[in-house]
Simulated assay, not measured.
Amino acid sequence: MREPIHFIPILTTVVALSFAPVVFRRWRERRSGYHLLWWSLGIALYGVGTFTEAWTTLFGWNEFVFRSWYVAGALLGGAPLAQGTAYLLLPRRWAHAFAVALVAAVAAGATVVFLSPIDPALVEPHRLTGKVMVWQQARLFSPFINTYAFIFLVGGAALSAWRFRGQPEARHRVIGNVFIAVGALLPGIGGMATRFGHTEVLYVMEFVGLILIWIGYRYNVAGSVRGAPPVSAAAAGAAEAAAG
């Protein structure tokens, strides 16, 4: 039975489709570094995942949509965003190496997901869950990939907030990165809830998490918060690097 909470992914998809072009345009304007490109890709894939949830709510369960949901959500929900942060924090050669490893892991996981038989008895008409896959080994890929995402996305935002602490001219960086860290953490909590059959928790966490990430992004790009003193040249350079 469909309930109002099942329609939340429609809103999340709209937010993602609005947010991703904003970051992509910033990358096109700057044409420097890979982090903004990875971030825009990550937000777009986030939207793909929530689109499959919205589709299932509106039109019912579909095998291809389910498999796409698992790959876009469980395997790619936060990984591209984390990879963007890896390019921001690490030497480029290290970030390249991590990117290759990440793509290989996602490709392997996606292959297993798309090849796994489906147990029709476990399919729910308007609800998605990984339990329907006969090869439950497919679900072993996501914890490793999502741990990588947690370390770089949540950890990277927390580290940035810590670095800017105590700098009045960079308070917006602290606030923005706290928003991003919390927003990035919420979908992971929702993902864990799906393993216990509570997919609706994921729907809420995805929506709130993406809103918080966008707020954090706006704070980082804005350059100041109300009442903050002008940013010094040195702080401005560090802040611009953090914002991309």
Rank of each mutant, 00 (worst) to 15 (best):
E3L: 13
I5M: 03
F7W: 09
P9M: 11
P9D: 07
P21W: 02
V22C: 05
R26Q: 10
W27P: 14
R30E: 14
R31D: 09
G33P: 05
Y34H: 10
Y34L: 15
L36C: 09
L37P: 03
W38A: 15
L41H: 00
G42Q: 08
G42P: 07
I43N: 03
G47R: 03
G47A: 02
V48Y: 00
T50K: 05
T50V: 08
F51S: 15
T52E: 06
A54D: 04
V65Y: 01
V65H: 01
R67Y: 01
Y70S: 13
A72E: 08
A72N: 04
G73D: 07
L75F: 11
L76D: 04
G77C: 08
G77T: 04
G78C: 10
G78K: 00
T85R: 11
A86E: 06
A86P: 05
R93F: 05
A101Y: 00
L102M: 13
A104D: 06
V106C: 12
G109M: 07
G109K: 02
A110Y: 06
V113Y: 04
F114W: 14
F114Q: 06
D119W: 01
P120Q: 05
P120F: 02
L122E: 13
P125T: 03
H126L: 04
L128H: 04
L128V: 01
G130C: 12
V134T: 11
W135I: 13
Q137R: 04
F144M: 15
Y148S: 11
F152H: 10
V154G: 08
G155T: 03
A161N: 09
R163S: 12
G166T: 00
Q167Y: 12
P168F: 01
E169R: 02
H172C: 02
R173C: 11
I175L: 14
I175H: 12
I175V: 13
N177M: 12
V178D: 09
F179T: 09
I180F: 02
A181K: 00
L185N: 00
L186Q: 06
G188M: 15
G188P: 08
I189P: 04
F196K: 09
G197Y: 03
H198F: 14
Y203S: 07
V204R: 05
I211P: 08
I213M: 15
G216K: 00
R218P: 08
V221D: 10
A222T: 05
A222M: 06
G223V: 07
G223E: 10
R226N: 12
P230L: 08
A236L: 15
A238T: 06
A238Q: 14
E240S: 12
A242V: 14
